[in-house]
Amino acid sequence: MHIPDGYLSPATCGIFYVVMVPIWTMASKIAQKTLKARQVPLLAIGAAFSFVIMMFNVPIPGGSTGHAVGGVLIAILLGPWAACIAITVALVVQALLFGDGGITAIGANCFNMAFVLPFVGYYTYRLISGSSSSTSNRRVIAAAIAAYLGINCAALAAGIEFGIQPSLFHTANGQALYCPYSLNIAVPAMLGEHLLIFGWIEVIVTALVVKYFQKQDSILQKGEEL
């Protein structure tokens, strides 16, 4: 889902930076206000955790493997605003140091993966889990649905961002200047692979991790989210 430089027009990238600035500012203010001094390193550790979680290859039926993003999991563990900061940091490190995801597309990538994904996932989780006990199965199901919904909403957002490029940015003779696929191709392509493959990897990882957390005396039971 990482968008490299050159897939989106500079105007689109600029718009997403403009959209993300108030979100980052708000996340930074909320984190500074609510963050206990002891939890400051937790943000960095959360970001590194989010980065490293992508290194775990999950076996999927048929002998293949895929990796999870873990955005919803981080949101459940740290809260949506802290997850926004942690995932943004992970994406910035990936873009700047490893060339994974473009620098010009950081705004768009953060909108999809550090805003849409954790917020949709977190509030879905809260809505479904309600006031159930921290060890109930309802929370595992809530986490699974939240993960599936979160990653697919992020994929839909990415698909729309790709899909609007050919109609907005093309030459006089119809040649696409950026992503060449229109909405009717980009959205099904992005959504299809996430609905069928990557969404399920996210579900498996998030649900199993939440289930294992329930078995332990962990942060999830202490309710120490930000």
Partner: peptide, 11 residues
């Protein structure tokens, strides 16, 4: 913002 830079360098 400092909180981001601090987090990035620690991360």
């Amino acid at each position: 913002p400092k909180i981001f830079v601090l987090t990035v360098s620690m991360c």
